[in-house]
Simulated scan of single mutants.
Amino acid sequence: MIPPADTLLKYDNPVLVNKSTDRKSPKGRPLKVSPQQPIDSTPVPPPPKPKSASTEATKQENEEILNLILPPREWMEGNQLWVQKVSSTPCTRTDVLHLEELLDTKLQERQARETGICPVRRALYSQCFDELIRQVTINCAERGMLLWRVRDEIQMTIAAYQTVYESSIAYGMRKTLQAKKGKADMKNRILELENEKQELKKALNEEKAKCETVEKIEAEKRQLEEKRHNEEIQLLKRTNQQLKAQLEEIIAPRK
């Protein structure tokens, strides 16, 4: 027989179940295995002293609740089905101290981290909490069911946080990929703008050269125009002086 993985939760000895006659209930209820009794001709011994009906009923009810909270675990070995239920033996103070020591030992053996998120530490503490629920349920089924609700609420909260964490990781990955793509696009855009800038600088230099050439030509034209204008003025002045002199000569004899 190959037993399942070791756990902090205390189990009874595994029981071999005949698949042709015994089946597992959907909620993991305790399975009743009736071993075959050999035929014997010896006298039947007297039945044991009966216990009170209320005590037996309470014990049976507590076992059913215990198996409901902590279902039996099953595994296959070849064609044989093995079932192992949680132990219904009441615990003592020594058992609790032993559980604490065993928890510390397993935390060290499996090198669980003391802080932060650690699946190993979470699994071990979950097993320890299940063992505490088992111990409490044996003595008080109502208290055990209340702890069961607390455990399920904690697991649901952790699952919700895990979903949010996974969603945030996926969102972060999408944003990272988008940022990388945007970075590549931005680099290409920067190269395009740099090339456009160089082309604009080249065009600006060409336009400046044209402007300087035009200014130089216009300056030369302006100088020529000024020179010609000055010559015309001088010519007109001389002509005016000549005409004035001629006019004075014409007018002078008449006096």
Rank of each mutant, 00 (worst) to 15 (best):
E199T: 08
L177G: 02
M1V: 13
M76R: 11
V136K: 12
Q198C: 00
H229C: 08
K255G: 09
G144Q: 05
L102A: 02
Q111I: 04
E249M: 08
T7C: 08
G144Y: 11
C128G: 03
M156T: 06
I154C: 15
P30D: 12
L132D: 02
N67Q: 13
R238E: 15
L107P: 01
Y161A: 02
K227D: 06
S52Q: 07
N195E: 14
R149A: 15
K210V: 00
I39F: 07
P71H: 12
E153T: 14
R134D: 04
K255L: 08
E61I: 00
D130L: 09
E101R: 03
E192M: 10
K197P: 00
C211S: 15
N79M: 03
V86R: 01
A203C: 05
L177C: 07
E232Y: 09
K187Y: 13
E218Y: 02
K244R: 11
A170N: 12
Y161K: 00
D185R: 15
T94M: 10
I117W: 07
Y11A: 04
Q246D: 15
I133P: 11
P50C: 03
M1H: 09
A160M: 03
R122T: 08
P90T: 05
Q37W: 03
K227L: 13
G116I: 05
E166R: 10
L99E: 01
P26H: 01
I250L: 15
G172K: 10
L97P: 01
V150M: 07
L247G: 06
K85M: 06
R73Y: 09
P119Y: 07
T94H: 13
E153Y: 02
G172C: 06
A160P: 01
L66Q: 08
A159M: 10
L8F: 06
E74S: 12
V83F: 02
D6H: 07
P119D: 05
P253K: 07
P43I: 05
D104A: 07
S126M: 09
E225R: 04
V44H: 07
P71W: 03
S87A: 09
V214A: 13
Q84N: 03
I190F: 08
K32R: 13
L204D: 10
Q80V: 07
G182E: 09
K227M: 10
E226K: 12
Q36W: 10
T239A: 12
P119H: 13
Q162S: 10
V96Q: 08
K27S: 07
R174E: 10
R122K: 12
E153A: 11
K10S: 14
T105S: 01
T42N: 11
T55M: 07
T137F: 08
R110Q: 08
M145T: 14
E215N: 11
E77T: 12
V164S: 06
E142S: 13
E131P: 03
Y171C: 03
K210N: 10
N205Q: 15
K106V: 00
I117H: 12
P26Y: 03
L243P: 01
S25A: 09
G144C: 11
P35G: 02
E215L: 11
K255T: 15
Q111T: 04
P90G: 02
T89W: 01
Q37A: 14
Q108H: 03
P4I: 04
P14K: 04
S34T: 14
P45V: 06
I133H: 05
